[in-house]
Structures are given as C-alpha cells and as structure tokens.
C-alpha cells in the first residue's frame, strides 16, 4: 500500500513479511518436496526433509474462505474480516482490509492483493507494519 512511508525505523509484524518498495510475504519451502511453511522449521511436515530455502509468495490471490469476526478476545478490535487467501497455490492467512467488513462487501472467490499498513509506533519510534489483503 502506498501509504507506507519510507521511514527509517520499521519492523514487520512477522518475520515472513518483507517490507520495502515491493512488500511481499516469504515462505520456507522444503527443498525436497516443495511444501511451504511460514513458521520457524525443524523439518518438513510433509516429507520430514530438513533443507529449506526462502521463496517469495505471490501478492495476488483469491479468497477461498472468510469469516467476519464480531466477537473476539478482549483487546482485539472488531469487526474484522479473517480470511484464507489462495496466492497462486499457497494458502495464506490474513485479514481482508480496506473494505467494509460486511457480507455484502466480502465474497468467496474475491480477487485480492497484498497491502501493508501501520500498526503503531513503539517507545523507540519504530513503526510496526502489518499486512492484509485488499480488493484487487
């Protein structure tokens, strides 16, 4: 998203979000079988292989499941749209953002693209940047 300014001190919400001119997500891909994971790995859940390399995940996708959460844990702002987005064969979990969180505005099969946004600034002046998917 264009509104992410080129501030000196930015940190991604999670380590698989790459910031910069072309923000994108990365995955740890099993060298042996190609299974992709977003978390720190010990081995592959699919083939038990232990070699991984980092791959960029496509930023365009299609909503294959969603829910509009209106009741969440204390401190979690509602409503928000939680979704599973198919990014060229890799399933990604993320919110649908920059859209009204109602069933009229979100639909299965909807085309979306990755977008980033400012979560907040800490005491050191560092900005945390999150990601979501917005209608494409």
């Amino acid at each position: 998203m264009a509104s992410v300014r080129g501030m000196a001190n930015q940190i991604p919400l999670v380590d698989y979000l790459v910031l910069g001119d072309a923000p994108h997500l990365t995955a740890r891909e099993c060298t042996a079988c190609g299974a992709r994971f977003f978390d720190r790995r010990n081995a592959c859940a699919s083939c038990s292989g232990t070699e991984f390399h980092t791959v960029a995940v496509g930023t365009d996708g299609e909503v294959k499941a969603f829910t509009i959460v209106t009741f969440a844990a204390p401190g979690v702002p509602v409503p928000f749209v939680s979704a599973i987005v198919d990014c060229g064969g890799t399933s990604v979990r993320g919110n649908i953002i920059n859209v009204e969180p109602t069933p009229e505005h979100v639909s299965l099969g909807m085309k979306v693209r990755l977008a980033t946004y400012l979560i907040g600034t800490d005491d050191n002046g560092t900005e945390a940047i999150g990601f979501g998917f917005e209608p494409n």
Binding site: D15, F38, A72, S82, A83, R93, N95
Partner: peptide, 13 residues
C-alpha cells in the same frame, strides 16, 4: 513467526 505483537485479529482469527 517472529511476531512483534499479538497476531490474533491482525493475521486472521
């Protein structure tokens, strides 16, 4: 995931 804060509500539910 190397998260800097809570992800519930920010990266899905």
């Amino acid at each position: 995931y190397g998260a800097v804060t809570s992800t519930d509500g920010r990266i899905g539910t």
